[in-house]
Design a protein around this nucleic acid. Structure first.
Lengths: 205, 205
DNA sequence: TTAAATTAAACAAACGTTTGATTAATTTTT
DNA sequence: AAAAATTAATCAAACGTTTGTTTAATTTAA
């Protein structure tokens, strides 16, 4: 029972934190959505804030693997690796978009800075992998000598700009007032195609 | 007296909302920072939420002008206009980074969606102008036939990714653990140079 | 029969907001 | 021009709610 309820609470927390933020979500609301008694949150996690920490801890473990494997796999050209990274990154962000929004929201705020370090570690690992790939391309003479760090910023930033908020996405993409950027397959294809094109134009000699 | 205090309250609100979010900022905290009595917030603005609306209303008026003027000015090539847009956009975001963060934070959340429309209008106008410039470049044969909307997403996204949060910025840019992305001139130069380069590689035939 | 899980109820603290009184400034009346 | 009436600005105090958390009692599981 215990593991189940803990999981339910974490899921409810991701749902609500991603939509209303940490301060905008009450423990009662959260317990109600998880279908448990209010007291269970503090019984299992100690406090609302520690629940947040546990949430980050639990979900971030799941992330790291695939990207590393992807970077280690040999490919004929380095740009193909970049393509694969774009595909993977977009897919992963779509799959975990609520979790991703939750921790990004947290990073934008100044309160609870002790949590920032934990979140930072997740991002830092991804950055390292992307750095390795692009630097390899430069060393081999396949890529231009670009600003590697800011190239990664543009790659991630392009995705975040539309993925983090439906409002922002609807704003950027005209016409589709009712579509959901997190599930629309056509949009996903359009986004990955654009970013790959952008990176190829930017990186290739 | 009235105009002064209203302005003080709005300034305090931008300061605090940008760091702690709307829900994370109490009216007492806000009034204290503004140096006014707690009651004045509701006396002048009606409610905490209406203060937010007034804040958006007031500060968004200031924004529109320069970009429009910039789009209307003739230049030898269209890419020069893109360069100017990048310079202007980065400068403007730096100048108003707290306001920009405040309204972006609001867009990421789902609560208070009535406010979203007001904020959306600000972004939409900027998008229109950027669309015009890039489409002109394509029509003249100077630019490739790129995905115009997503090109704008990449331009803005590249800036937002580092500008919205010091945590995110420190994460992206190694070594400079103590530097402030909103005031560091060298970083501003580096960012604009990168984005201009990225846009040239992406747009020019 | 212990120990763990779950609950309803209660807790103090903090929340946004309203109140009624007071002062300062402005307008109206004489 | 002086007095009276009206309006606007400001304040401390209190309002009723909601907040995160804790307690103490009860149920469930081992």
């Amino acid at each position: 029972m215990s593991a189940d309820k803990k999981e339910q609470i974490i899921n409810a927390a991701i749902d609500l934190f991603s939509e209303n933020g940490f301060e905008g979500t009450s423990v009662r609301e959260l317990a109600n959505q998880a279908g448990v008694n209010v007291a269970m949150v503090n019984y299992y996690f100690g406090s609302k804030e520690k629940l947040f920490e546990a949430l980050v801890e639990k979900r971030s473990l799941f992330i790291r693997e695939k990207l590393e494997q992807l970077a280690a796999t040999e490919t004929p050209t380095e740009i193909e690796k970049v393509d694969a990274v774009v595909d993977h990154y977009v897919n992963r962000l779509l799959l975990q978009h609520k979790f991703h929004r939750t921790i990004t929201l947290e990073l934008l705020l100044v309160k609870r800075e002790n949590l920032h370090e934990n979140i930072t570690r997740i991002f830092a690992r991804n950055k390292e992998i992307l750095m390795t790939i692009i630097q390899a391309g430069i060393r081999k003479g396949e890529f231009r000598e670009v600003d590697v760090e800011l190239t990664i910023v543009s790659l991630i930033g392009s995705i975040n700009q539309v993925m983090l908020s439906k409002s922002l996405c609807r704003l950027a993409i005209a016409g589709n007032n009712a579509f959901d950027p997190y599930t629309d397959e056509a949009f996903k294809k359009r986004l990955t195609t654009h970013i790959k094109q952008l990176m190829r134009a930017h990186l290739l000699k």
